[in-house]
Computed example of a mutant assay.
Amino acid sequence: MTRSHRLEVDGGLHLHLVDHDHGPHAAPPLVLVHGFMGSTQSWGDLPARLSRHRRVIVPDLPGHGRSDRPGSPDRYGVLEVAGALARMAEGLRLGAADWLGYSMGGRIVLAGAAEGLLDPRRLILESASPGLETEAERAERRAADERLARRLEVEGLAPFVDDWLALPLFATLSPDARERARRLRLANDAHALAACLRGGGTGVQRSYWRDLPQVEVPTLVLTGARDPKFTRLGHRMATALPFARSEGVADAGHAVHAEAPDAWARAVTGWVGSD
């Protein structure tokens, strides 16, 4: 059964989620955590495909999709959101689950694992990073994100989305994938996204590079071969994590799940198993 519902996770905050539960399955549940401006719909038919062998839970992060949209940036910090996801997992009685985070979602999942908020059986980090290493880098990123947040508030969502999808990160999207990504992103709210940039951007969170050796969870670091920046980051992360492997997907860029869904599904299933 596939069920869409809202779950209260913290102080009146409700997360919308889609629960693909066709059990009973022997395999542990899998949680998919989308990136900035994403939603439950960002994964296409991949959750349904994966749910043939396991329960798959797909939440909308705070400020995204059909989840609540707090006005305060404090509600979007990576640890605050990781805590909300942990309470979601507890409310759904997931037990030992596998967690996959894409881009911003990967930062949140990794921070949650490093801080002990999440207790994953296995991790998959798709085009993710542990954050920026120096305060100078973080300060520069905070200033850049503040400019983006102000632009969202002044100009609205459409021009922001068009410029976002014009970034080199998304240069490898096909025309169809680009149009679908644009349509889904335009369903968000400009003010909520501005608060997310201020509270959950890479410049706000602390660096987790030094914490990686203590994340003793089997981890697949998944990147697109046509995304050189995150491929380099992925190799370095996999070297620092004690039980990790990096895998590059040919003919894919930053959004591996959108650009090469079949290869993404094979990599995910191969890592978490099917029974």
Rank of each mutant, 00 (worst) to 15 (best):
L222I: 12
G234F: 13
D176C: 00
N188H: 01
R210T: 15
T239V: 15
F230H: 10
V217R: 02
L169T: 05
P228N: 09
R185D: 12
D189S: 00
S207H: 01
A171M: 09
Y208Q: 11
A190V: 01
V221G: 10
A244M: 01
N188I: 05
A181M: 11
A240K: 06
A244W: 00
R232A: 15
P175H: 01
R183S: 13
W209N: 07
Q214W: 14
T219G: 01
G224N: 09
V217Y: 03
H191M: 08
T219L: 08
V215P: 08
R232G: 14
R183D: 05
D227G: 03
C196H: 02
R178K: 12
F230R: 02
E179V: 13
Y208T: 07
N188R: 03
E179Y: 10
G234I: 09
D211E: 15
G200I: 02
A240H: 13
P168Y: 00
T219Y: 06
T239M: 12
T202L: 15
T239C: 12
G224S: 11
G234K: 07
G201E: 02
R226K: 13
G201A: 01
L241N: 06
L184D: 08
G201K: 07
L184A: 05
P218I: 04
H235T: 10
A181V: 03
L220W: 08
T172N: 13
G199F: 07
V221F: 01
W209H: 08
F243L: 15
A225C: 05
R232D: 14
A195N: 00
A240Y: 00
L186S: 07
G200P: 13
P242M: 11
C196P: 05
V221P: 08
R245V: 11
G234L: 07
A195E: 11
V221C: 07
A181F: 12
R180A: 09
P218S: 04
D176N: 08
L220V: 11
T219R: 09
T202D: 15
Q205V: 15
P218A: 06
L212W: 11
E216Y: 00
T239K: 15
P175Q: 01
A225V: 11
L186V: 09
A240C: 08
T223R: 12
L197M: 05
F230T: 07
A238I: 13
F230L: 14
R182V: 10
R185H: 04
R198A: 03
R178N: 08
T172Y: 12
V221S: 12
L233S: 00
S174E: 00
P168D: 04
R206C: 04
P218G: 04
R232Q: 13
R226E: 13
K229A: 03
D189W: 00
L241V: 10
A238G: 12
P218F: 10
E216T: 14
L193W: 00
E179W: 06
G224D: 09
P218Q: 03
F230V: 08
S207K: 09
P213T: 02
M237P: 00
L233Y: 13
G224M: 06
T202R: 14
L233W: 02
A194L: 03
R178Q: 07
Q205W: 11
Y208C: 03
M237D: 06
G224K: 08
R178D: 09
A181S: 15
C196T: 05
R210S: 14
R245A: 06
D211K: 12
T239R: 15
E216W: 01
V221Q: 03
L193D: 11
L169G: 03
T231W: 03
D227S: 00
